[in-house]
Design a protein around this nucleic acid. Structure first.
Lengths: 206, 206
DNA sequence: GTCTATAAAGCGATAGAC
DNA sequence: GTCTATCGCTTTATAGAC
């Protein structure tokens, strides 16, 4: 691939590819489609990427790079407590899923995320583990500080993340309002429970 | 398609197709693959199905048929209360996702479930709505009977279902034990909250 | 660096012999 | 009912002119 990796075109192609895959899925998007969107010919496009597989890998990297940067940033905010950090993490995660993956095809996200049988699987699992670990750490801190009960965080972490991830499937801004507020409500449910409060308020939130 | 619709081969092909699509996704599975799995030739296979699209549709129908039958059966159990019914519904849903969709590729499920842009989309949305409505009905009953607080069931329903659906992604029997018990635990978290119980037990479950 | 042209393979689907 | 054979199309990827 002779062209410089960091050229303007390179980024342009990546952007177009992401946009298309978001709408039509990885399999549903051909190199031809991407080339058309950028306005160059298919043959030219493949000067930038050795193969479609490499392109998919680059997209996945970028997707998770953006995420892990923000995640690390949030996790580093020492001025706010672990509960607030957890809330921010989950809100970001919801936005990341809902924005980067348009509703018709959350599939492409899965394809880039869910472990495949190939040797790519181990790599994907590692990325996912690194991503999840931040959420788990905050939950552990919450348990330590008695903000939440002593629970199995190994189970609670993917449970919380799962519910939030899935929100991208059914969330409609015009129907449910701002995403952040929706996620906050979901978190409140988890923390405070759904049972009727027996006369006195039991668990008030920050 | 001359061959009888209910022949042994017909079901055999459907089984093989489901197994393959579960592992490799719809796009990743060719008619050739399915034919090889069954042990017949590609040309022969297409005597049973007019097209691959029809095959996909049949699979989706079968998937949701099994589900809606069981769902309706559970929803009809008047002898147990709405909370118990809701628990059973969610447990079934978790099992349905985890069993019919093997963990590596929940993707195929998405492809059959997530609304597509085509005219198939409306049909899929209707199926999904019918499926979801049972869960929503039980939640409404729970609210009416003051089993849970007055909450927006339109949001709570997909939230609960989402968390449970996602469980199929990370659930490992050898690590997490029986799936039913895991889901029960998740439901307990929702109902009773995660906050530490202040001295006295607030929300005991059935 | 972008183009045209084309190779090589796989796909869904059809036709017709047996 | 299953087979072989093949059409027509699309795909990824490469080669070489400009």
């Amino acid at each position: 691939m002779p062209p410089k990796k960091d050229s303007r075109r390179h980024a342009e192609v990546l952007d177009a590819a992401i946009a298309l895959i978001r709408r039509k899925g990885l399999d549903g998007t051909s190199i031809q489609d991407i080339a058309d969107a950028v306005g160059i010919k298919k043959g030219s496009l493949l000067n930038y990427f050795a193969s479609k597989a490499e392109l998919a890998e680059l997209i996945q990297d970028r997707f998770t790079e953006i995420a892990t940067d923000r995640i690390a940033e949030i996790a580093g905010r020492d001025e706010i407590g672990p509960e607030r950090r957890l809330r921010e993490l989950l809100k970001f995660h919801a936005e990341h899923c809902a924005i980067h993956i348009s509703s018709p095809v959350l599939v492409s996200f899965m394809q880039l995320w869910a472990p495949i049988d190939s040797e790519l699987g181990a790599r994907q699992l590692a990325v996912r583990e690194r991503y999840e670990s931040h959420f788990r750490d905050e939950l552990k801190a919450c348990v330590r500080q008695r903000i939440i009960r002593k629970v199995d965080v190994g189970v609670l972490t993917p449970t919380l993340m799962g519910a939030v991830s899935w929100t991208a499937f059914w969330y409609r801004p015009e129907q449910h309002g701002p995403l952040g507020a929706l996620v906050e409500k979901q978190i409140d449910w988890w923390l405070d429970g759904l049972r009727p409060r027996s006369g006195t308020k039991t668990g008030a939130r920050a």
